[in-house]
Design a protein around this nucleic acid. Sequence first.
DNA 1: CATCAGGGCCCTG
DNA 2: CAGGGCCCTGAT
Length: 326
Amino acid sequence: MSKKCIKLDRKTKIYIYPTKPFNFEGTFFKPSHFPSKLVKYIKGKLYQGIRVNGRPFGLAISDSIKEDKARISVDIYFTKNISEVAKEKIKLEIIKRYDLDSDIEDFIEKFKLDRLLSAPIKSLGGMKPSTAYSLYGFLMVATVLQNTTVGRSVKMMDTLLSNLGTKLVYANQEIFLLWLPEDIERVSEEFLRKLKIGYRAKIIKRISHAFVIKEITEEKLREKANKEEIGKDLLELYGVGRQTVSYVLFEVFHFYNAFCYIAPWEQKIFSKLIFNKNKVPVADILAIAEERWGKWWMLAMHYLFEDIFWRNKKQKIDWLEKEIRM
DNA sequence: CATCAGGGCCCTG
DNA sequence: CAGGGCCCTGAT
């Protein structure tokens, strides 16, 4: 059992210019997302680790508008040295994960007067679907999220990270870096089960193995242009079903119309938001969404969803609190 | 105390 | 294609 800890005591800065319209907070912090020690959002700064060319780096990302240009500043923390190549790679990785080079102006223009979207667009317009994680990292999080309460998911991820992750210390923060697929090859399923993650131990073993033998790679999937192909490859992974695929297509690969799937807990929330009813059939919700928002339907739903979670953060909304059981 | 479902997915019939 | 089982936990 390795308890790795790395102090990143050197720092450099880069800037990234996202495509407008752009909303920093909406893109870099999602209140509806599962909280973990992999990412922290404090006072307008997002802290996360990243691995590039096998080396760990710590990031602190913040909004840094320059006159009329959208701009973010990225402090990169490292040990010893950092090459220009590594800096460039980190930049490209951030652009990919946070969808910074896409253009959603048509979406904003088209729906800024939409009865349901006008308020969310007013407060979050320019928000992109994004993830702090690599594809592998995302799948690990999705695995921990399966068939349990958020509270237990948090515990499972904490235990996994303290046993298999790497603690990064920088900018007065402690952030964890996820383990590598190779690290999982070195531990037994039994060992993982002792961390009280249950049947997920097998899933983590099998997904990690698929990455190690390059049966699946993020690079190759990114080269494929259509969601059906990517979805098919992902579904072949043990422990990955349509719920996870739908999230991955949207948040990792940024298809704004991903897959036609809505989870039961989301169904309840959308029923309330769109119909002001308790439980509308999923098929009806999907039909309305596609009819109303077309090729943008999942992005539209994302705006609705994040908006209500932001509002709940500012002032508790009772019915929503009941749906997010910790 | 026991029972149960939870921010899925696999497998069987 | 529907439904039981899976690890474990906190709620009831």
